[in-house]
Design a protein around this nucleic acid. Sequence first.
RNA 1: GGUCUAGUAGCUCAGUUGGAUAGAGCAACGGCCUUCUAAGCCGUAGGUCUCAGGUUCGAAUCCUGACUAGAUCACCA
Length: 592
Amino acid sequence: MEKDIIKYIKEGLETIYKAEIDNLDISIEKTREGIDGDFTVVVFPLVKYSKKKPEDTARDLGVFIKQRFDDIASYNVIKGFLNFKMTQEYWVNRLKKLSQNNQVNLNKGEQKIMIEFSSPNTNKPLHLGHIRNNLLGDAVSRILKAAGNTVIKVNLINDRGIHICKSMLAWIKWGENSTPESTNQKGDKLVGEYYVLFDKKYKEQIAELVNSGLSEDEAKEKAPLMLEAREILQKWEAGDKETRRIWAMMNSWVYDGFEQTYNMLDINFDKVYYESSTYLLGKELVAKGLAKDIFTKDPDNSVWIDLTNEGLDRKILLRSDGTTVYMTQDLGTAFERFEEFNPDKMIYVVGNEQDYHFKVLKKIIDKFDSDYSSKIEHLSYGMVELPEGKMKSREGTVVDADDLIEEMILTATKISEESGKINDLSESERKQIIKTIALGALKYYIIKVDPKKQMTFNPNESIDFTGNTGPFIQYTHARICSILRKAEKMNIKFMGKISTETSLLNCEIKILSTLTEFDNVIMESANRLDPGIIANYIYNLVKEFNQFYNDYSILKETNAEILQFRLQLSHQVALTIKNGMELLGIDVPEKM
RNA sequence: GGUCUAGUAGCUCAGUUGGAUAGAGCAACGGCCUUCUAAGCCGUAGGUCUCAGGUUCGAAUCCUGACUAGAUCACCA
């Protein structure tokens, strides 16, 4: 549509004013609320071609296009804005066309994109921050796929490092061989408890040392627990059997726990990487980098890269004791991925606290002669904070993922029971619907906000189920399904025609116009890596439909053609809701 | 201190190649269920788009500077 208008505007300018036109000057938008018209051309940028006043230019163009473009019913000029109203036939045909093509299918991207998200540490359970990461990564994957790309979802499990050794040490010292079975606990929760316990005891030791005269920094370094944890890390890297056994056992507990949470969120991966197997490749790369003089070795044997010439700092790649750091591992993982899959793009969904890390990572990869660096993109999202500040696992001030989901289900159950609308369904059906609603509320709440913005979550204020929420959208879908179920019995078929003496309502055209934007919205969301755009689009569509639903009856409409049209329109709205929400990873029920 | 990100209604947020009168939801108040699912709809009230300059026909949007908040600059990950 826009393309057609642009074409005619360009032609008009060329014919009337004999000018050479830059397409970028022509902008088409939806006509503003309260003004007569469907599409608007902003004329101001075009006066440089016409050398006339905006109003006169608009009038010239209006006449020109109206004569040539049959789909335009009328036009008007307000200040420098040229508004077009499309014909009824045009809109009915748009609906007909939409209804013939029921799937999201935009073969336009055609890139191979690898996307990493989730990337949990195996020393603690998932919390709200991880939920944001997972939902974002999952939704972006779905959207990129819908935009025509091949998407490979990967998870990089951070299963080694000093933080894991802390949990292990605490368990060895005070765990008394407890297991998830013996304590009847989710594995990730059990391990997380020992991580917290380590921190508690460690802090006690620091306090003692500070009392005996050490500085805070010295105390942190010299505390016996820290020394022991470091020893475990070295034993681990050396392949010590017993250390590896405990490590593997505790990690497997955590994986079982994560699996349950992922299942609940309906999140899965095409491939899972473990840092315990990629960090060695990182070490090899460090050796190569040393040979190529990209890196330098300090007298104490630690390895560094100097990026001070590029406005960054010196960065360590290998500790003096030879163990690897985060950067080393990420380096190894990146090369492994490019060599195995050769993706056109590699997206990392990682919090904005790591902006600097990825800047450095790209720089280092750039130093090796490869074009990988330019293919790396960091989808940096804002942290989820509590009213009192950052969540800290070590201090137990986190909103636990499982607890939050459970709480959502309880609320959904309560609301559902109060409404009583699904009481006649079976127990299992009810449970399924309630779970769908609970997760819909949670997921939509997280995903509707711009990823790059920090968000505050107040645990004392529960997530809403009314207003701009997942359940509101789901509800509208269920309501349309209910109408369609009733209509099915009446055996009504949409013919795609409406006689000229009946006319469409403004609100119907508005809905239809919104429906036709769906493909563009997907592309925009994919380009900007922002699922929130789709969330807002669906909300807007749903709101428009609800207004229509409230003011006009669909099934009681006596004019057969309008009845058909309205049913088809409703059907299309329901389908768009379903498809759109699916891109966000949210299910929509047919009853609720 | 350097770098990055953000600042829009009491609260949570929309608002991107600069376009007409800055929009939703929540909370508050008032109305609408014998009629397709009221998790809905309508209305009232709520704004110096942090501030000050600049760019221009036009700025919440772009530029500069201040202020505020957060992140980061680790032999943590």
